[in-house]
Write a protein that binds this DNA or RNA. Sequence first.
DNA 1: CGGCTCAGTCGAAGCGTTTCGACTAACCGC
DNA 2: GCGGTTAGTCGAAACGCTTCGACTGAGCCG
Lengths: 356, 356
Amino acid sequence: MATMQDVARLARVSVSTVSYALTGARPISQATRAKVLAAMAELDYQPNAMARGLASRRSRILGLLLPMDERGLGATETAFVTGAAAAASAAGYHLMLSPIGVGDLDELRRLASQRMLDGALLMEVQLHDPRVDVLRELGVPLVLIGRTADTDGLSYVDIDFDQTVRAAVGHLVDLGHRRIVYVNHSADTLAEGYGPALRTRDAFTAAMTGHGLEPLMIPAEDSAAGGRAALATALRRAPDLTAILAMNESAVFGLLGELATRGRSVPDDVSVVSMVTSPQVAELATPALTAMSSPGSAVGRIAIETLLRHVDAGDGQINQQLMPCALEVRGSSGPPRTEGKPTEAARRRAATRRRA
Amino acid sequence: MATMQDVARLARVSVSTVSYALTGARPISQATRAKVLAAMAELDYQPNAMARGLASRRSRILGLLLPMDERGLGATETAFVTGAAAAASAAGYHLMLSPIGVGDLDELRRLASQRMLDGALLMEVQLHDPRVDVLRELGVPLVLIGRTADTDGLSYVDIDFDQTVRAAVGHLVDLGHRRIVYVNHSADTLAEGYGPALRTRDAFTAAMTGHGLEPLMIPAEDSAAGGRAALATALRRAPDLTAILAMNESAVFGLLGELATRGRSVPDDVSVVSMVTSPQVAELATPALTAMSSPGSAVGRIAIETLLRHVDAGDGQINQQLMPCALEVRGSSGPPRTEGKPTEAARRRAATRRRA
DNA sequence: CGGCTCAGTCGAAGCGTTTCGACTAACCGC
DNA sequence: GCGGTTAGTCGAAACGCTTCGACTGAGCCG
C-alpha cells in the first residue's frame, strides 16, 4: 500500500506538497500538480483514512442513528436512507449505521466521544429525544429526520403532516364523505411521544373541525391484527362511517382484509386513504390504495446536505424543512354510496368484471 | 476532550501503561490498573478512534455492502441487518453502510484501499459477484450473506433454499396437491444470475420431479402488477392448478388480489405458500399466508461472528452455513377442493362467517 | 530601485494511539 | 547463590497524514 511518502519521492517533491496538491489547501503550480497526480496514478495511491482523520480531526464519517425494531424498514424509511447514502457518498463522506434508539444513550455517548463522527443524522425522532441533548453536549453537529417538540436551533427535514392530513381529508370531503375515521399508530406509540402520530392526530382534528365534521381517531397496533381490531372498533363507534384515513401502513392491510371479510366493498361501501405511503406499497393492496405519497429519497438527501453545511461551516444556519406528500388517487377511494344509485366506481368495477 | 496523556499524567504512570491497561496487551498490576481506570473515569476518557486506528492498523469498522434499490428492504433483509448491527456492536465494532452493488466497483476499490474497513459483509450477492474479487485482491476479509456460484475459500451464511423449497412442496403434496406452480422472481433477475431465484428454480424442479410431478415455473416482476400478470400466465398454462408457491414477496400480494378479483378463493380453490417470508409480512395478507419463515437476525449475527473470526485470526477457517426456513402453516393453504364435498377449510370458514 | 505582496514549495511539528525493546525486581529450580 | 524466567513498567519510535511557519523568487507600485 503506497503512502504519501512514496508519492512524494516518486514525484520529487515534499510530502506537504503532495498533500496540498491533493486537498487544494494551498496553491500548487500546474506542473507540480501534474507530476504529483501522475505519481499517485502510477502507485495506485489512496490516502489512508485513519491517518487523514487523525491529522485533520475530521473522520468524514456521518452517523446514521436509526433504531431498528423487528418490524423492518418500510419503503418510506428505506428511501430516506438511500437518499442519505447517495448524498453522503457524492460528497465524499461515509455513513456509519448505528441502530441507536433513545434507549442506548451510553452507547451513543461512547460513539460520539470517540471522535469518529463528524455529524449525525437522527431518524425515528421522538418529541422529547434525549439523543439530541447528548449530541449537542458533545458538540456533534446533527440534523433530524422528523422533529422534536422544541426545534429551537435544530435543523430538520420532516414530512409536512399538517398539509398531508389536510389534503387527504380534503380529498375525501370533496368526494362527499362526512363520516371519516382516522386510524393512527398504537396508543403506546402515542403515549411514547412519537411525533408523526401526535401531529397527524392534531392535524386531523383541525381539518375535520374546519370542515364542520366530527373527528374520530382510533389507535391501532402496527400489525394486520391491529388493523382488524381497529376496524371493529371504528364500526362500533361510527357505524355510519364511509371513509377511513390510515396512518399505519401495517394496519391498513388488516383493515382491508377485515373489510373484505365483512363483505364491505372498497371503495363503494368504505373509502380508504393511506398516509405517507410509497407507490410500491400502495400498489400491493387490492384495490390499490389511494395514498399520500411520501417524498422519498429527497428527504435523506436534503438532510445530509444540511448536515454537511453544519459540519463544514461550523454550524451554518439552521434549516427547517417540511416536505409535502402528494395525493395519488388509486382505486381505494371514491364517492360514498348514495341510496339507490350505484357509484361511478361501482359501475367501473362491474364493467371490469364483465370483461374478465 | 481528554487524551491518553492526560490520563497518564493524572494516574502518574506512562502513556504506554495506560494503553496496556486499556487493551490488556501486556500484564498490568491490579493497583496500577485501578489507578488508571480511576483516572479515566474522572476525565471521562474515551480513546480516539482515528488515532487508535492509525496506530493499530485496525479501524474496528466493518463494511456492510448493501445495494439498495427503490424497492426498499424487506423484513427479511432488515432482520439480517439488525442481527449484524447487534453482533458488531456487541464485539465493539462499527458498521459502515455502503450501498455498493456490483455496479460501483471503483467506489468499492476506493473504500477498501483507504484502509477504512477491517472486513466486509456482502449482501445481495450474485452468482458471479465481482465485489468478491475486488475485496480479495485488496486483502479485505469478507463474508457473504447469500453465496456465489463458486464458493471455494469463501465463508457465507445463506438460506437453505433446497430444504425450504422441499419443505414447501412437501407441505402442498401432503395436502393432496398435484398441480403446483412456482412463481419466481423476474426473468431479468434470473438472467442477472440472482442466486436465490436460480437455486429455488432448480430445487423446485428437483422436488416436483421427485414426487413424480411436473414442475412449472413462472417468473414475475417484483410488484403487485407482476403478481397479477403471473397469475394470468399460470392459469393459462396450467388451468387445473390447485396450488401456488411464491418466492416473490411483492408479487404474492398482487397474486392474491387477482385471485380474489377472479373469484377464486384461497385456500379452497387455490392454496398459496410464500417462501422466505417474515411472520409480520405473512400476517398482512388475507388470509394470512402459510409461509417458509426466514431465519431472521441469526443470519446477520452469524455472518458478523464469522467475519470477526477472519479479521482477528488472519483468515481463520472457512465457515459455510445454510440456515433452514421453518414451515408456518396459516390460512392460505389447505387441501385441494374435491368434487362434491367441501374441504375442511371451507367448512371452517363457513362456520366463522355464521358467527360473525 | 527599495520595499511589498504573493504564488509556490519545503521542513518539521503535531494528531493520539499502539507496540517494541529495554530495564528492574521478584521468583524459580537446583 | 546463580542463570533464567516472568510480571510490571517506561521511553521512544512508529502510524500516515495535515498544517503552520518560513523561505525563495518574481511581479508590482510609486
